[in-house]
Write a protein that binds this DNA or RNA. Structure first.
Lengths: 234, 234
DNA sequence: ATAATCGAATGGTTTAACCATTATAACAAA
DNA sequence: TTTGTTATAATGGTTAAACCATTCGATTAT
């Protein structure tokens, strides 16, 4: 029914005012806040209190703070950075395991593939084919690092195709938190690369005939194979 | 290849030390940090700098700070609070819309239902049946508020059944951010409630015969209906 | 032209004091 | 004894003024 009564903390009020200004567009990304010594007068507070407010805003990912004569607080574009950081905390704390995240990722990528298939434009399929051709070259030359980068680009493009930023944010959060494990535990070879390449080809084929379910099923297996390999090599 | 070189910010070092102590279990949830005036000596810093560190830890959701003589910084159990807050920022900033979240929720709940079905134990089905019977009573008496609470409990229990905290966290994040819209825009009536009740019954039936796909499909329609109604009433 | 130097603005830190809140103890009243 | 009041002291919240460290840009020297 009721909300917790407002605390009497001055810095919170400062945080809210600046945050609101950022969210409603009064302060645009890239714009710079006044210097601390000027801001403290604007809010009629002390520099220490103002700095606590700036610290909170920085932690929320709303501003960057630069040093030096031309430094100061710069309004950032809102993105997933704080979410990723919190997710990393959950992982490090042991509340969630890599296996849990892998399971989640399989389902998410499957859902994304379905949505992507529904929204697939000719241009999207062309882009994927272009990536596929790049991947083929790297496969022939056994350049696994470049090969994996293409694989990642494919996943990202499928994220774009969903036309839904929530999926894109979640995908990025998961990827950034799981990437170090891939890098450590995933050794590539000709056989595995060929499997991936085949998946890629099948997905494009399915997209061309608007077969969302098949595309989804393939990418889920694709991600599952990655995750399994990774866990086995741990 | 390389990481950004460490900043020379003292408070960051303090944040990292305390955060590490919390994450590796040296500081357990519920335990209290020393008072500011004592901590500043431990870290050999000033109170202002120490407070900036505490502000960051508070924002990260790692500690609570209480006022008064028995007050101080208390180590919290890590949860989704900071994630939900960041997600709320994304929504408020207009980076994602309610429709985007609704689309995401439909897919997530579908995936959760599949997982839940795979892990369904007898006890789980009994619990759902018990909730179903409660819902029937509220339906008969047209107690819509209580009815919706049972509906929410059903979703939460399905989250539990996934045995995967990532899904549970995401579900909670989505729900907490979308709930106010439900409350504002979702008017219940006998017809809609009966639809929900029927969904509920079908899901239990599907679970009993281990039909994950059907259960998933039903709950996706169920969530979709909610979301559509909500958008129509806006 | 180019390089070195200096100055000034800005964030980062320190210190010391005072204010506001609150759990607890001491005390008073019933 | 029980209950309500008051005083105390520890703790977080705030303020003020000074100094340090970094950085950009202007000035100067080569």
């Amino acid at each position: 029914m009721f909300k917790k009564a407002k605390q009497t903390r001055v810095f919170q009020d400062v945080v809210e005012q600046i945050q609101d200004a950022i969210l409603n567009g009064t302060l645009e990304p890239g714009s710079k806040l006044p210097a601390e010594r000027a801001l403290k007068d604007v809010f009629n507070t002390s520099r220490g209190t103002l700095r606590e407010a700036l610290r909170v805003l920085e932690q929320k990912g709303l501003i960057d703070i630069k040093l030096g004569v031309a430094g100061g607080a710069i309004v950032k574009r809102i993105d997933t950075e704080p979410i990723m950081e919190s997710l990393a905390l959950l992982i490090r704390s042991g509340e969630v395991s890599i296996e849990h995240i892998a399971e989640f990722r399989i389902k998410i990528e499957g859902s994304m593939m379905e949505l992507a298939a529904e929204h697939a434009a000719k241009k999207d399929i062309q882009e994927l084919e272009s990536l596929f051709n790049e991947a083929k070259v790297f496969y022939k030359n056994s350049e696994w690092e470049s090969f994996l980068k293409i694989d990642e680009k494919m996943h990202t493009h499928i994220g774009m195709m969903t036309r839904n930023p929530v999926f894109q944010f979640v995908q990025k959060s998961i990827h950034d938190n799981i990437h170090q494990y891939y890098a450590q535990h995933l050794s590539m070879n000709k056989k595995r690369a060929l499997e991936n390449l085949t998946d890629f080809e099948k997905i494009i084929a399915a997209l061309k005939i608007n077969d969302a379910k098949t595309a989804s099923s393939i990418i889920m297996d694709h991600v599952k194979r990655f995750s399994d390999k990774m866990q086995k090599n741990r």
